[in-house]
């Protein structure tokens, strides 16, 4: 166990990003092909949801900028702490998914709503009235109203 968990090469000074694709028009393979075309030595790993890319921060940033153009409203990017295949976070060693996986699984269900939002806001400015959390005292019956109801009942 200890050997298997020993720290891997540190990839010092690199960043790793997840690139999720949730698109009716582009599949992960197509995205991967595009990434290889422009990768310039960036490490690319294909996954079921898209890609993981690892490299110097500026190079990764440039790659992401290009990749997003493939399908702007259906590509989502997120930082990852670990480089791909790190034994400390590898499913084969853990026996189960790393905890972050479930969080992604949860958010991937709402990506279609986000895509819709991105498409809608890309072309025009959408005015939003309010999209906040529900406050604790929201939607409660005011006391005056309650008294009124009671009085009416008594009549």
């Amino acid at each position: 166990m200890t050997n298997k968990m020993a720290p891997p090469p540190l990839y010092s000074g690199t960043v790793t990003k997840y690139v999720f694709i949730d698109s009716p028009n582009v599949n992960p393979q197509t995205l991967a092909i595009r990434a290889y075309e422009i990768s310039k030595g960036i490490m690319i790993k294909e996954t079921c949801f898209g890609l993981q890319v690892t490299g110097k921060p500026d190079e990764v940033k440039e790659l992401i900028r290009e990749l997003r153009k493939v399908d702007p409203a259906h590509i989502f990017v997120k930082d990852r702490g670990f480089p791909p295949g790190d034994p400390r976070r590898c499913r084969a060693n853990l026996g189960g998914a790393r905890p972050g996986y479930y969080g992604h699984e949860f958010e991937s269900r709402i990506l279609r709503y986000i895509s819709r939002g991105l498409e809608e806001t890309a072309s025009r400015t959408v005015t939003v009235n309010k999209f906040e959390k529900t406050k604790m005292d929201e939607g409660k019956l005011p006391l005056e109203k309650l008294l009124e109801i009671i009085e009416n009942e008594e009549d």
Binding site: M1, M5, R91, L94, G95
Partner: peptide, 25 residues
């Protein structure tokens, strides 16, 4: 976590995390 791994290794045991899905959760 490392202490848990080390204790397990000393008695030839292996820690693992049962695999479940978000639907299972």
């Amino acid at each position: 976590q490392k202490e848990i791994y080390d204790a397990a290794a000393m008695v030839n045991a292996e820690m693992f995390f049962p695999d479940v899905t978000l639907a299972d959760i």
